[in-house]
Amino acid sequence: MQDQFEWPEPEHEADEAILRNVRKHGCHITGIADADPPFAFSIGLFLNYGHPELIIFGQNAGNAQAIINLIRDRVAAGHKFVDGDICNEMLEDGYKLGFWQVPFGAYPAYLGTAIWFYWKSRLKFPCLQVVWQDVNRRFPWEADCSAAVKKDQPLLKNIVS
């Protein structure tokens, strides 16, 4: 992957931080706290590990970063998550995470900085949405899932083509 990649030119200090984090930590996490719902996404997983980038909705910045970093650590160890996977080994108390492919049509609205990062190389990077369960261990696509959890997690695969 890296042999096809051309690093973007940083225009701001924030861009330099992204490049530094991707090199040092394997990815950078961009949080959009003022969105409704808030969300965060990774930049660099595809470059460094050949793994889809990640986006997660409805978590505060600390939780979103912790979840993405847990997944990054698994990916760095060689695990690959794909569309439809359910993982019950990362969160406490038996809570699970689901992984859904993000359609390319959603990228401009949610993944602008990642588009900037990969644009110079013209790499079509994949992205997975990380979906979490409500307190009753139901995913937003399941019957009786909390309305608040459904509101906090727009399922991009269902709403954007």
Rank of each mutant, 00 (worst) to 15 (best):
S121C: 04
K80Q: 14
G58Q: 08
E53N: 00
L128G: 05
G84A: 12
L128Q: 06
Y95T: 05
W100G: 02
E89N: 13
Y110A: 03
A64F: 09
G98V: 03
V131Q: 01
F57L: 02
V102E: 06
I43R: 03
A114S: 14
A106S: 12
Q59H: 06
F99C: 03
Q59W: 07
G62N: 15
L128V: 04
V75I: 15
Q101D: 14
E92P: 00
Y118C: 03
F81W: 06
K96F: 03
P126L: 12
D34R: 10
W100Q: 14
Q129G: 07
G98H: 03
A35T: 09
D34E: 15
N60R: 11
Y118R: 06
V130P: 03
L54R: 01
F104E: 15
H51M: 10
N88R: 15
Q65Y: 09
W100R: 15
L123W: 03
W119P: 00
D36Y: 08
W100I: 13
N88L: 11
L47K: 08
H51S: 13
N69R: 14
L45D: 03
R74A: 11
H51G: 11
I71H: 02
G112V: 12
W132E: 04
P103C: 00
K120N: 11
K80N: 10
F39E: 10
F104Q: 15
V131K: 02
I43S: 01
I67Q: 08
D85C: 04
V102Q: 03
C127L: 02
G105K: 10
N60I: 11
I67P: 00
D83M: 10
G44D: 00
P108G: 07
K124M: 09
Q133H: 08
I71F: 06
W132D: 04
G98M: 02
Y118F: 04
G84M: 06
L97Q: 11
A114M: 08
P37Y: 09
H79T: 14
G78D: 12
K120G: 01
D34A: 12
I115T: 07
V130T: 08
Y118V: 05
R74Q: 15
L70S: 14
I55T: 06
G44K: 00
P52T: 05
V102K: 03
P52L: 04
L97I: 10
C87T: 13
L70H: 13
I86K: 13
I71K: 05
K124N: 14
Y107V: 08
A109M: 15
N48L: 00
A76N: 06
K120L: 11
Q129M: 05
V75L: 00
A64T: 09
D73R: 13
D85Q: 07
D134C: 10
S121L: 00
L111N: 02
K96M: 12
G105F: 02
V82G: 01
C127Y: 00
G50N: 07
G44W: 05
H51E: 13
F46L: 00
N69V: 11
